[in-house]
């Protein structure tokens, strides 16, 4: 499955002197293809996460469209768009995002339970094995380290076997060993046929990416050629 952003931009309105419009993302085109890790790098506040959220269907672009396959994501009603995201887009958000009231296993199964999809427990266990956190299945997020939490987010993003994987600073506060583990897992996902968007400011990530873009003041430029 392919995700295509065409001419997407996003403005924010904020209080302050002079102009109150802030162009977080200027008109941008981006295509995520199967089997490819696309890295978007850049400084904090450059617009990387805005682009990822627009691609995920979580932030309506001021201009432009996002196509998931042939489906215009933002032409859908909220319920349909949410379902599409649940089925086809795995999002690994920035920060610690485990639900505190659920165990690790319940967190991973959350996208399935939400739509009444049963029988995914074995696959969830497999994912936990792959992420090397199987022994923590009954632990709560508050008992996990940063690296374990990030791997939980990846397992949760993969449980619905989505074609697209969007990772926002997945190695943000991890040590070298955990950074390597997480980036390797994302690489593996691409090798298995997923389209992966990796938003990061880690220089190390370049080694795992097929395409690298740089975002500066909302403008996206390719780093190749």
């Amino acid at each position: 499955m392919k995700l295509r952003a065409e001419g997407v931009s996003r403005q924010y309105f904020r209080q302050g002197k002079g102009t109150n419009v802030f162009n977080a993302l200027k008109e941008t085109d981006l295509t995520l293809e199967e089997g490819v890790v696309t890295e978007v790098t850049g400084r904090s506040g450059s617009g990387k996460s805005t682009l990822l959220n627009v691609c995920a269907g979580l932030l309506t672009p001021t201009t432009g469209k996002v196509f998931l396959g042939d489906t215009d994501l933002y032409a859908q009603e909220d319920a349909a768009r949410s379902r599409l995201r649940n089925e086809s887009i795995g999002v690994i958000p920035q920060g610690q995002t485990g639900l505190r009231s659920l165990t690790v296993l319940e967190n991973v199964l959350l996208p399935c339970v939400m739509y009444g999809i049963e029988g995914q427990e074995t696959y969830a266990e497999e994912l936990l094995e792959q992420m090397d956190i199987a022994e923590l299945r009954n632990a709560y997020p508050s008992e996990l380290s940063g690296g374990e939490m990030r791997r939980l987010s990846i397992a949760r993003a993969l449980i619905r076997r989505p074609g697209i994987l969007l990772a926002d600073e997945p190695t943000g506060d991890l040590d070298d060993e955990n950074t390597h583990i997480v980036l390797s897992l994302l690489r593996k996902c691409a090798d298995e046929g997923k389209a992966v968007l990796l938003v990061t400011h880690e220089a190390e990530a370049a080694a795992y990416a097929d395409r690298i873009y740089r975002m500066e003041k909302g403008v996206l430029t390719s780093q190749e050629g």
Binding site: D78, R83, N86, V91, P93, G95, L99, P111, M114, Y115
Partner: peptide, 16 residues
């Protein structure tokens, strides 16, 4: 807020 945002991220609709 963050918890609800995570639910939206994994596919919860506004109605859910």
């Amino acid at each position: 807020k963050k918890e609800f945002a995570v639910l939206r991220v994994v596919g919860a609709s506004q109605k859910m």
